[in-house]
């Protein structure tokens, strides 16, 4: 297997410009007893799309919530490490202020406001902004350009729209806050492959045209790495691999465990599990 360095986006740090988001050695404990993250470090450069990969329960969502400060309302706590947005610590910043600073999370499972119409959902995204009125209208029109389907459904209650439309609505709602960094949690969940493709396409376009940075937690390794420039692989609350998307896509472990492709000889599942366990200790 090819060893991959852990200096992910080294070229950027060498130039001295701080990354947009720096997560260093973060440990998260829920309810004072459950250790979920055991020292996660990652870096997201300005204007990048970075993928956070891993299986169920690896700690992807917890990592994102630690960044957006949503852990406190779930009895979770960052007990060690630091999270910095543009060099400033976010430890005691409320989610409201964090959204105002440009960091917003799109939660897993979309979480649209079911009884509000699509348009009302989008407008709630602008709540934290200080400039209201005309510029909100303009942004709403901009969102409708990105998501023409939302415009068609703007008067329907979000609860009655399709899963893909709800994902677009959740994404559009977050964009209404004029973010610089969007933490996108599992956008593919429960969606048809075609719709997943559509959503990622929009994310890619947004990133290119507006320069919004994305940190995407995904189980669908294949599609996430196609759109992301870098990726981190989480396993049991630790980063076990990281690198550029090309490096990760070429990596045998990633191929085997996260994309279901094996090398020339097909290994048995039993061996694979054993191998994976050993790998984790080495990492």
């Amino acid at each position: 297997m090819v060893p991959i360095s852990t200096q992910g986006q080294g070229d950027r740090s060498e130039r001295g410009a701080p990354a947009l988001l720096e997560v260093a050695n973060v440990e998260v404990i829920y309810s004072h007893v459950i250790l979920v993250l055991k020292g996660v470090s990652l870096e997201v450069g300005k204007g990048a799309i970075v993928a956070l990969l891993g299986a169920n329960g690896a700690g992807k969502t917890t990592t994102l919530k630690a960044i957006s400060n949503l852990l406190k309302s779930e009895r979770g706590e960052v007990t060690r490490g630091s999270i910095k947005l543009e060099g400033r610590s976010t430890t005691d910043v409320t989610p409201h202020d964090l959204v105002r600073q440009g960091c917003i999370q799109v939660m897993e499972g979309r979480r649209c406001f079911q009884h509000l119409t699509i348009e009302e959902n989008l407008l709630t995204g602008a709540f934290a902004r200080s400039n209201i009125g005309k510029s909100v209208r303009e942004d709403l029109d901009r969102i409708y350009q990105y998501f023409p389907r939302l415009k068609e459904r703007r008067k329907s209650q979000a609860g009655y729209t399709s899963g893909g439309e709800q994902q677009m609505c959740a994404l559009g709602r977050a964009l209404m806050s004029n973010p610089r960094l969007v933490l996108l949690d599992e956008p593919s969940m429960g969606l048809a492959p075609q719709v997943v493709e559509e959503i990622f396409d929009i994310v890619g376009n947004l990133n290119r045209s507006t320069g919004v940075t994305f940190l995407v937690a995904e189980q669908n390794t294949n599609i996430a790495l196609r759109y992301a420039s870098h990726g981190y692989v989480l396993e049991s609350g630790r980063v076990v691999l990281d690198g550029t998307s090309d490096q990760l896509l070429a990596n045998d472990d990633v191929k085997e465990f996260y994309m279901g492709l094996s090398g020339e000889t097909r290994k048995s599942f039993k061996d694979g599990k054993h191998y994976r366990r050993r790998k984790r200790w080495l990492a």
Partner: peptide, 10 residues
């Protein structure tokens, strides 16, 4: 409708 989601969008 949804506390957590409301919190997450600020």
């Amino acid at each position: 409708d949804d506390h957590q989601a409301a919190l997450s969008i600020g």
